[in-house]
């Protein structure tokens, strides 16, 4: 039997399809990206080797830093606005029981299953200064001008609102299952000891949720870095470059500005930042666990 289980040919045939897709669609493009990032390739014609020129330019590129800042803002939006509400809602939802619990859970998650294309265009219409939902709500409160949320100055906030709104259900659901996994006996014991509901929340639910919170925060940071689709359709990084994210920016460089080499330099740095963030978060959270 051991012979059968260490048959190299069988093993090879089992992992080959997976490895092959990985090689074609993930590893090869990364290698190619590193190569093109060292050239001045425009997408057409010849690629001349330019060394680290693209990377040197990237460090001084204000738009790149702006994109990184926008990711940080989005991560903060997730962690400081979306998550506290999500934890609270998940906790209340768990208490609710019965039909309302399932129905509300369904409603909160619903925007998540809807295509980003629909969501982005829907919010474009909501933000429309002529007939949008936001404009009408503002008029209801006596506002008389016409407000373009996607205009200069407010655009990034308008984009953040959409992203925080769209992702709310996912974050909530993860907290919700975390809370569901807490043993009811713990709550019963707390109730016997006469704990109020806010005491239960802060002294029992939150501490027991630590691993889930850590996981969710990591996920939020990574997804803030990876953001592209919604922003691409809502503003395409504009007005100016106010709402640029790393992914929209690299795409713009390659497809709109014919700086294919430069776009690839952004790709490479983008990958490095994502890897670094993942490793860093894991380290940070693992160390804390040891310290406690």
């Amino acid at each position: 039997m051991h012979k059968l289980y260490s048959n190299k040919l069988v093993i090879f045939s089992l992992v080959l399809p997976g490895l092959l897709t990985f090689l074609i669609a993930i590893l090869a493009p990364i290698v190619l990206s590193v190569y093109y990032s060292l050239t001045d390739y425009s997408g057409l014609g010849a690629a001349n080797f330019t060394g680290l020129a693209n990377y040197a330019a990237l460090v001084q590129d204000e738009v790149f830093w702006r994109a990184l800042l926008n990711s940080v803002l989005l991560a903060l939006g997730f962690i400081c606005i979306q998550h506290p509400i999500a934890v609270l809602v998940a906790w209340k939802l768990d208490r609710l029981q019965g039909k309302a619990e399932g129905l509300l859970r369904c409603i909160y998650f619903l925007p998540n299953v809807i295509s980003v294309a629909v969501i982005a265009y829907l919010w474009k219409f909501i933000y429309n200064p002529n007939f949008g939902l936001l404009q009408k709500v503002l008029e209801l409160f006596g506002y008389e001008g016409s407000f373009n949320a996607l205009g200069s100055g407010t655009a990034i906030w308008a984009v953040l609102v959409v992203l925080v709104w769209h992702g709310f259900g996912w974050g909530m659901l993860i907290y919700y299952t975390g809370i569901k996994n807490i043993d009811q006996v713990v709550y019963e014991a707390a109730a016997l000891d006469g704990a109020t509901s806010s005491q239960t929340f802060f002294r029992i639910t939150l501490p027991m949720m630590k691993p889930v919170i850590k996981y969710n925060v990591t996920l939020a940071i990574i997804s803030a870095l990876k953001q592209m689709e919604t922003v691409y359709l809502l503003t395409n990084g504009g007005p100016g470059n106010e709402t640029q994210f790393m992914a929209t920016y690299l795409y713009k460089q390659a497809s709109g500005s014919y700086k294919y080499g430069y776009g690839n330099a952004i790709s490479v740095v983008f990958i490095v930042i994502c890897l670094a963030a993942t490793v860093l978060m894991n380290k940070l959270f693992a160390e804390r666990k040891e310290a406690v």
Binding site: G18, F22, A28, P29, S33, K226, I271, C274
Partner: peptide
């Protein structure tokens, strides 16, 4: 090693592969 390789994909941002994949 193969497990590690396959899991690596979890951390790689999809959009970073858009440009080179077009060429490939």
């Amino acid at each position: 090693f193969v497990s590690l390789l396959l899991m690596m994909g979890l951390m790689i941002p999809i959009h970073a592969t858009l440009l080179p994949n077009y060429i490939i």
